[in-house]
Amino acid sequence: MATGGRRGAAAAPLLVAVAALLLGAAGHLYPGEVCPGMDIRNNLTRLHELENCSVIEGHLQILLMFKTRPEDFRDLSFPKLIMITDYLLLFRVYGLESLKDLFPNLTVIRGSRLFFNYALVIFEMVHLKELGLYNLMNITRGSVRIEKNNELCYLATIDWSRILDSVEDNYIVLNKDDNEECGDICPGTAKGKTNCPATVINGQFVERCWTHSHCQKVCPTICKSHGCTAEGLCCHSECLGNCSQPDDPTKCVACRNFYLDGRCVETCPPPYYHFQDWRCVNFSFCQDLHHKCKNSRRQGCHQYVIHNNKCIPECPSGYTMNSSNLLCTPCLGPCPKVCHLLEGEKTIDSVTSAQELRGCTVINGSLIINIRGGNNLAAELEANLGLIEEISGYLKIRRSYALVSLSFFRKLRLIRGETLEIGNYSFYALDNQNLRQLWDWSKHNLTITQGKLFFHYNPKLCLSEIHKMEEVSGTKGRQERNDIALKTNGDQASCENELLKFSYIRTSFDKI
Results as ranks from 00 to 15, higher is better:
Ile163Val: 08
Arg113Ser: 02
Ala198Ile: 13
Thr211Asp: 10
Asn42Asp: 02
Tyr134Glu: 02
Asp101Asn: 10
Cys268Pro: 02
Ser166Val: 14
Thr68His: 02
Cys264Gln: 03
Arg297His: 07
Gly95His: 09
Ser161Lys: 08
Pro270Phe: 10
Lys292Cys: 07
Ile185Tyr: 15
His214Asn: 09
Gly241Arg: 03
Thr194Asn: 12
Ile306Asn: 14
Arg162Lys: 12
Trp210Glu: 05
Val200Arg: 10
Leu152Cys: 05
Val34Met: 04
Thr267Phe: 09
Lys67Asp: 03
Lys193Cys: 12
Leu44Ile: 14
Asp184Pro: 02
Asp72Ala: 03
Asp277Gln: 14
Phe91Tyr: 00
Ile122Gln: 01
Cys235Tyr: 01
Gly333Ser: 15
Pro269Trp: 07
Leu99Asn: 00
Met125Asp: 01
Gln276Thr: 12
Leu240Asp: 06
Asp247Pro: 02
Gly203Asn: 09
Ile84Glu: 00
Phe91Val: 01
His212Val: 07
Cys243Ala: 00
Asn242Thr: 11
Leu29Met: 07
Cys196Tyr: 01
Lys217Ser: 07
Asn308Leu: 12
Pro104Tyr: 00
Arg279Asn: 06
Lys100Ala: 12
Glu238Asn: 13
Gln299Ile: 09
Tyr118Arg: 00
Ala119Gln: 00
Cys335Glu: 03
Arg74Phe: 10
Asn150Trp: 15
Tyr154Ser: 05
Val108Trp: 10
Leu102Thr: 04
Cys53Gln: 00
Pro336Gln: 08
Tyr259His: 12
Thr211Ala: 13
Gln245Ile: 13
Trp160Val: 00
Val34Tyr: 07
Pro197Ser: 15
Arg92Val: 02
Asn325Arg: 10
Ile222Asn: 11
Asn43Ser: 08
Thr157Phe: 02
His307Tyr: 07
Cys223Ala: 02
Tyr87Ser: 00
Tyr304Gln: 06
Pro187Ser: 05
Ser225Ala: 11
Arg145Ile: 04
Leu60Ala: 02
Asn117Trp: 03
Gly32His: 10
Ser54Asn: 15
Thr107Cys: 08
Ser237Arg: 12
Leu29Thr: 14
Phe283Ala: 02
Cys293Val: 06
Asp247Arg: 11
Gly227Asn: 02
Leu90Asn: 00
Asn257Val: 00
Leu63Met: 03
Ala198Gly: 04
Leu260Ser: 13
Gln303Leu: 12
Asn117Thr: 00
Cys209Pro: 03
Ser54Gln: 13
Cys331Val: 09
Gly192Lys: 10
Glu71Pro: 12
Cys209Glu: 02
Leu63Thr: 01
His28Phe: 10
Cys331Lys: 05
Asp277Asn: 15
Tyr134Gly: 08
Arg162Leu: 10
Pro270Gln: 12
Ile56Arg: 10
Pro79Ile: 02
Ser284His: 08
Asn117Ala: 04
Leu106Ser: 00
Cys286Tyr: 06
His214Met: 10
Thr194Asp: 05
Cys328Leu: 02
Ile56Ala: 00
Gly142Arg: 00
Pro187Glu: 09
Ile158Met: 03
Asp184Met: 15
Ile185Gly: 07
Asn309Ala: 12
Thr329Trp: 06
Val108Asn: 15
Asn138Met: 06
Val173Pro: 04
Arg74Gln: 11
Cys280Leu: 03
Gly227Ala: 04
Ser225Met: 11
Cys234Gly: 01
Glu51His: 02
Gly95Pro: 00
Ser213Tyr: 13
Asp86Thr: 00
Thr189His: 13
Asp169Met: 13
Lys80Trp: 10
Leu99Met: 12
Pro79Tyr: 03
Glu147Gly: 00
Ile185Arg: 06
Gly241Ser: 08
Gln204Ile: 13
Leu50Ser: 00
Asp288Arg: 13
Ser323Val: 12
Glu181Ala: 09
Leu327Ser: 08
Gly241Leu: 01
Asn52Ile: 05
Asn257Ile: 01
Ile306Arg: 05
Thr267Glu: 13
Pro313Asn: 05
Ser161Pro: 06
Gly232Ala: 08
Ala156Glu: 04
Ser296Met: 09
Leu289His: 14
His48Arg: 06
Cys335Tyr: 02
Ser166His: 12
Ser225Gly: 08
Thr68Gln: 11
Cys264Ala: 01
Gly142Ala: 01
Ser284Gly: 09
Pro187Ala: 13
Ile62Arg: 01
Pro249His: 11
Leu240Gly: 11
Pro334Arg: 15
Asn52Arg: 14
Leu164Met: 14
Arg46Gln: 02
Pro271Tyr: 12
Lys67His: 02
His236Tyr: 03
Ser244Thr: 06
His59Glu: 00
Ser166Ile: 12
Asp288Glu: 12
Glu57Val: 11
Leu63His: 01
Asn150Val: 09
Gly95Val: 02
Ser237Ala: 12
Leu164Gln: 08
Asn179Ala: 10
Leu60Ser: 00
Ala198Phe: 08
Pro336Ala: 06
Asp177His: 14
Pro334Gln: 04
Cys243Lys: 00
Tyr259Val: 07
Lys310Gln: 09
Cys255Thr: 00
Asn308Gln: 13
Asn202Val: 04
Arg74Asp: 09
Thr107Arg: 00
Gly227Tyr: 04
Gln299Met: 12
Phe258Val: 11
Gly203Thr: 06
Phe283Thr: 04
Ile158Gly: 02
Cys293Leu: 05
Thr189Arg: 07
Leu120Asp: 00
Val173Gly: 07
Cys252Ser: 02
Cys328Ile: 02
Asn179Met: 08
Glu51Cys: 15
Tyr134His: 01
Glu130Thr: 09
Gly188His: 09
Val121Gly: 00
Ile109Gly: 00
His59Tyr: 05
Ala254Thr: 11
Leu106Asp: 00
Asn175Gly: 06
Cys35Arg: 02
Gln287Gly: 12
Tyr118Phe: 02
Glu238Ser: 07
Asp288His: 13
Cys331Asn: 04
Pro79Cys: 02
Arg113Val: 00
Ile158Glu: 03
Ile82Leu: 10
Val305Asp: 03
Gly37Arg: 07
Trp210Thr: 03
Cys219Tyr: 03
Ile163Asn: 01
Leu128Cys: 03
Leu131Ala: 03
Gly232His: 09
Cys268Val: 00
Asn138Ile: 07
Cys209Asp: 01
Leu240Gln: 11
Arg263Tyr: 11
Leu29Cys: 00
Ser143Phe: 11
Pro79Gln: 08
Met65Val: 05
Val218Leu: 07
Gly188Asn: 04
Asn42His: 00
His274Val: 09
Gly111Glu: 00
Lys67Gly: 01
Leu81Phe: 00
His226Pro: 04
Ala190Met: 06
Met38Leu: 04
Phe205Val: 15
Phe103Ser: 00
Gln299Cys: 08
Asn150Phe: 15
Cys234Tyr: 00
Leu233Gln: 10
Ser237Val: 09
Glu97Lys: 11
Lys292Pro: 04
Gly203Phe: 05
Gly262Leu: 05
Asp72Asn: 15
Asp39Ala: 04
Ser54Lys: 06
Lys67Pro: 01
Leu50Phe: 06
Pro271Gln: 13
Asn309Glu: 05
Val305Leu: 07
Tyr259Leu: 06
Arg145Ala: 01
Asn179Tyr: 00
Lys191Thr: 14
Ser296Gln: 14
Arg69Ile: 06
Gly32Glu: 06
Leu128Glu: 00
Phe285Asp: 06
His236Gly: 09
Leu233Lys: 11
Cys239Ala: 02
Val200Leu: 04
Val253Pro: 01
Cys239Ser: 00
Tyr273Glu: 01
Thr199Val: 12
Asn117Phe: 03
Ser213Trp: 13
Pro36Thr: 08
Leu89Gly: 00
Ser112Ile: 14
His226Gly: 12
Lys224Ala: 10
Phe103Leu: 07
Cys331Met: 01
Leu128Ile: 09
Tyr319Val: 10
Ile158Ala: 04
Thr194Phe: 10
Thr199Trp: 10
Ser324Leu: 04
Gly227Leu: 01
Glu180Ser: 13
His28Tyr: 05
Lys294Pro: 07
Ser237Phe: 10
Ile139Trp: 00
Thr250Phe: 10
Cys35Tyr: 01
His127Asn: 04
Cys328Ala: 07
Leu133Glu: 00
Ser98Cys: 05
Asn149Gln: 01
Leu128His: 00
Cys239Gly: 02
Arg208Gln: 15
Thr85Gly: 03
Cys335Val: 01
Pro269Gly: 08
Asp86His: 15
Pro36Gly: 14
Ile172Phe: 07
Met83Tyr: 06
Ala190Lys: 06
Cys186Pro: 00
Arg141Tyr: 00
Phe205Leu: 12
Gly142Phe: 00
Cys315Gln: 05
Tyr30Arg: 02
Pro316Asn: 07
Pro269Cys: 00
His226Thr: 10
Leu164Ser: 06
Lys129Gly: 04
Phe283Met: 14
Cys215Met: 07
Cys234His: 01
Ser296Gly: 10
Asn105Leu: 01
Cys335His: 06
Cys53Ile: 00
Ser284Trp: 07
Cys264Leu: 00
Lys251Tyr: 09
Ser237Trp: 07
Asp177Ala: 12
Asn175Thr: 05
Leu327Met: 12
Tyr94Ile: 04
Trp278Asn: 00
Cys243Gly: 00
Cys280Phe: 01
Trp210Ala: 02
Gly32Phe: 10
Asn43Met: 06
Met137Gly: 10
His28Ala: 14
Val55Ala: 06
Glu124Gly: 04
Lys129Asp: 02
Glu207Tyr: 14
